[in-house]
Amino acid sequence: MANHDQVLDASGLNCPLPILRAKKALSAMESGKILRIIATDPGSVKDFDSFAKQTGNPLLESGEEGGKFFFLIQKA
């Protein structure tokens, strides 16, 4: 698992909150830093992929761990 600088737990939140919280967290981070997001919303898998593509913040890694989804997004 890649290292990360900050964690955002969006467990229990539904669309579009995980994305909005992630955007907010990334805005406050410096370029190059990595945010690890944890979510339970199954829709977030496709959504974070789209979010990364559209905002230009690369999605470094994603997957499932202990019944939850995780995403590593680097601030562009």
Partner: peptide, 11 residues
């Protein structure tokens, strides 16, 4: 509100 807030988050 969902579409507006999400679109804003996407830039």
């Amino acid at each position: 509100f969902i579409l507006a807030s999400t679109a804003a988050a996407l830039g």
